[in-house]
């Protein structure tokens, strides 16, 4: 399979005062198209940092990140925003839904950045909500939904623009075991049935088992 994500010589430092704090050091990684990767490692090892860099919401200190052949580190803020809206779906630990919007409104949000007409958007949102099994909750606000339901809305939102890549930072971190299993099942189906490439950060070995490949991060470096 062709690699979707190609990372070479990636480093990320933070400056605290005049002290340089290395978070990721000369890291290289490839993720094939259609792959499902679990990223594990101790707290503070740089998992979220790496995921954010791949998702194009943070900039590396050095090195290249090519995704689908595009060097995203070289894009401007505005270009990167457009690139994300087309290519990346986000799933967060705490769902990050807009509290004032219904499930429908939340799933529709990324489509506001497209030129789709209102009926086209409606059709897509309904299909996405059906896929995550929340058709009957479309008009509910996030605070009227359980954690698992909110995460399913978030997954529908991540899918709605049909991106190639889905990044998930501890998507089950705030859920109980049974609900976590449901969400993992759903992510598995996105990978299996829809062919989405998924990169998931998790602390949970059970969650990691559902992925095709396990990548370990230790003090900013990959360990096989």
């Amino acid at each position: 399979m062709t690699p979707l994500v190609v990372i070479e010589g990636l480093s990320k430092y933070y400056l605290r005062g005049d002290q340089v704090i290395p978070v990721l050091v000369d890291l290289s990684l490839e993720v094939a198209e259609g792959e499902y990767v679990a990223l594990m490692g101790p707290s503070g090892s740089g998992k979220s940092t790496l995921l954010n860099l791949i998702a194009g919401i943070d900039k590396p200190s050095s090195g290249t990140i090519r995704i689908g052949g595009i060097d995203i580190a070289a894009l401007s803020d505005a270009e990167l925003a457009l690139w994300r809206s087309i290519n990346v779906g986000f799933v967060f630990q705490f769902y990050n839904l807009m509290p004032v919007l219904t499930a429908f409104g939340n799933v529709e949000l990324p489509l506001q950045l497209t030129t789709l007409s209102r009926p086209e958007r409606r059709e897509r949102v309904e299909a996405a909500l059906a896929l995550v099994g929340l058709t009957d909750r479309a008009m509910h606000l996030p605070n009227e939904l359980s954690g698992g339901q909110q995460q399913r809305v978030a997954i529908a939102r991540a899918l709605i623009t049909d991106p190639t890549l889905i990044v998930a930072d501890e998507p089950t971190g705030d859920l109980d075991r049974a609900t976590a299993q449901e969400i993992l099942g759903l992510l598995g189906r996105l990978n299996d049935e829809l062919g989405k490439t998924i990169i998931m950060v998790t602390h949970d070995p059970k969650a990691a088992e559902t992925a095709h490949r396990l990548v370990h991060l230790e003090k900013g470096e990959l360990v096989a």
């Binding site: 998702a55 919401i57 994300r84």
Partner: peptide
């Protein structure tokens, strides 16, 4: 956090 989410989804500054 909502602002961060909007930006991540692709809304510009």
């Amino acid at each position: 956090a909502e602002i961060g989410t909007l930006r991540a989804l692709g809304f510009r500054r």
